[in-house]
Simulated scan of single mutants.
Amino acid sequence: MSAVELIRARLAALAPSALEIRDDSAQHAGHAGAKEGGHYAIRIVAPCFAGLSTLQRHRLVYDAVGDLPNARIHALSITAKTPEET
């Protein structure tokens, strides 16, 4: 399973109404950290983010992806919104 598929599967636990995952790894080829995993950008919209700060939202995303940052992800850019904020 690709890293994007794994990220998508794990973020399903947050019941997103919208989810976009972009693999930016090719833009970082040759970068020292690129050997440790890919570079990904996530845009996620989910009701569970209501009332949470940006930091709390990012923590929910990191909790959902679990151990992937240690194994398959080197860099992760997160945009997390509620349906009302989109």
Rank of each mutant, 00 (worst) to 15 (best):
I42W: 06
G33I: 12
G51H: 09
A32S: 15
A12K: 10
E36N: 14
C48I: 13
A80Q: 01
A71R: 14
A41M: 04
G38H: 05
A26L: 10
H74Y: 08
C48A: 14
C48H: 07
V4C: 04
D23T: 13
I7Y: 02
R59P: 08
F49Q: 10
A12M: 00
G66W: 04
I44M: 06
L68Q: 03
E20I: 07
V45H: 05
E20P: 02
T54K: 12
I7D: 02
I78P: 01
A46F: 03
Q56N: 13
R72I: 05
A26I: 08
T82E: 04
G38A: 07
A12C: 01
A75E: 02
D67V: 03
C48V: 15
R43W: 09
Q56I: 03
H31V: 08
H28I: 01
G66L: 03
G33D: 15
A15W: 03
I21F: 04
G37R: 10
P69R: 01
A26H: 14
V45T: 15
A50Y: 06
L19C: 10
Y62Q: 06
E5F: 02
I44H: 08
K35I: 10
L19I: 03
N70W: 06
E5K: 10
S77R: 07
Y62W: 01
G51Y: 10
V45E: 12
V65A: 01
R8F: 00
R8V: 00
L55N: 05
E20S: 14
A34S: 14
Q27S: 09
I42E: 01
R10E: 08
R8N: 07
L68M: 13
L55P: 00
A64I: 04
P83R: 03
L52H: 14
Q27W: 11
L68I: 02
Q27K: 15
H39N: 11
H74E: 00
L76P: 03
S77W: 05
I21Y: 06
E85V: 04
I73N: 02
A34H: 08
S17A: 13
E5T: 10
H39M: 07
A12R: 10
Q56K: 15
R72H: 15
L6H: 09
A29T: 11
